[in-house]
């Protein structure tokens, strides 16, 4: 094997012949699977697992990837999203790695077609179904890390559901800024006990965790943790009576909801960017599949009306 020249973009493809279906060996998959069951049975608890090194950087979704590779089978249809888009570099990279190491699976960009969805930083706008599984990539699994650096101590606090220091931190924010300043990774209490870091999803996506029809699994590869929000389970963002939890606002200065310049949607999480030509600010659905779907349904409606 050492005298072969690998053509640049096919390194993995050549190498994959030497690897098991799903890249991980079956023992590694079993360990992940056992941890997944524990994570479901103890909602929100971070189950430690050994977390194998993957051929991409820690922080690039290796935790989510290990979950996906341990779950996926030839009958699955996979969707991979990063920042809401299937076409961003990291999503493409992860998807092509999974395609390569899992011959026989299907991939899709359509949420409705997917059985397994791996995502970084977003939950799809369209509500997921019972037969779908969402895997979220997690950089920092522990919501308590902002108040307690020692994992040993954090584990005790979690066990006792002692989140007083976290609440004090939120309260200090309010005193200082008259607002909770946590933008994403909003601490969310699962089933009335464990508070999780729901991964760097925006606050917009946090309500989707509550009473979700689909199972949501979270994987932190570098920190070696797996946790879960089971379906039909209470997920409540931490808040105070007088300062409620609020999702991102997309209203303009007159209080009018901004819309997506592509599809006109007025109820999705928007990306903001500056038009290179005009210098104006533009807004566009962060979830590219949802945006496409809206455009398509408008076209269909027009055709029906015409």
């Amino acid at each position: 094997m050492f005298n072969q020249t690998f053509s640049a973009d096919t390194q993995f493809r050549k190498a994959s012949a030497e690897y098991n279906f799903g890249f991980l060996d079956e023992y590694a998959k079993k360990e992940v699977r056992r941890s997944v069951l524990k994570a479901i049975a103890i909602p929100g608890y971070q189950v430690p697992y050994s977390s194998r090194e993957m051929p991409m950087g820690r922080g690039f979704g290796t935790g989510g990837l290990q979950l996906t590779l341990s779950l996926i089978g030839k009958k699955d249809t996979l969707k991979v999203i990063d920042q809401g888009s299937d076409d961003s570099v990291n999503a493409v990279n992860l998807r092509s790695f999974i395609e390569m190491t899992c011959p026989g699976i299907d991939t899709t960009t359509k949420v409705s077609e997917a059985t397994l969805i791996q995502s970084r930083h977003r939950i799809p706008e369209r509500e997921l179904r019972e037969d779908q599984i969402l895997v979220l990539q997690v950089p920092y699994p522990d919501a308590l890390v902002v108040v307690e650096p020692s994992e040993d101590k954090r584990k005790i606090m979690h066990g006792e559901a002692d989140y007083s220091r976290l609440l004090v931190k939120l309260y200090e924010d309010i005193v200082k800024f008259n607002e909770i300043t946590i933008s994403h990774r909003y601490p969310t209490r699962i089933n009335g006990h464990y508070v999780i870091d729901p991964s760097p999803i925006p606050r917009w996506d946090v309500p989707k965790l509550n009473n979700s029809k689909s199972l949501i699994l979270l994987g932190a590869g570098r920190e070696k943790k797996i946790y879960a929000v089971p379906p039909y389970t209470l997920a409540e963002p931490l808040e105070f009576d007088d300062i409620p939890f609020r999702v991102e606002s997309f209203n303009d200065s007159t209080g009018k909801r901004r819309t997506c310049w592509r599809c006109g949607c007025d109820h999705s999480f928007l990306d903001e960017f500056i038009d290179a030509q005009t210098g104006d600010k533009r807004y566009q659905c962060s979830d590219s599949d949802y945006c496409d779907e809206q455009i398509k349904s408008q076209v269909n409606n027009q055709e029906l009306e015409g």
């Binding site: 991409m56 950087g57 820690r58 922080g59 690039f60 290796t62 990063d82 920042q83 809401g84 961003s88 570099v89 990291n90 930083h121 977003r122 950089p139 933008s183 994403h184 990774r185 760097p200 999803i201 925006p202 606050r203 917009w204 570098r222 991102e248 999480f269 928007l270 990306d271 903001e272 962060s286």
Partner: peptide, 16 residues
Amino acid sequence: GFCTHYKMPHYVTFQS
């Protein structure tokens, strides 16, 4: 790995 990951897009969290 974690150091390198900061080069990845963080559009959504930055928006937030």
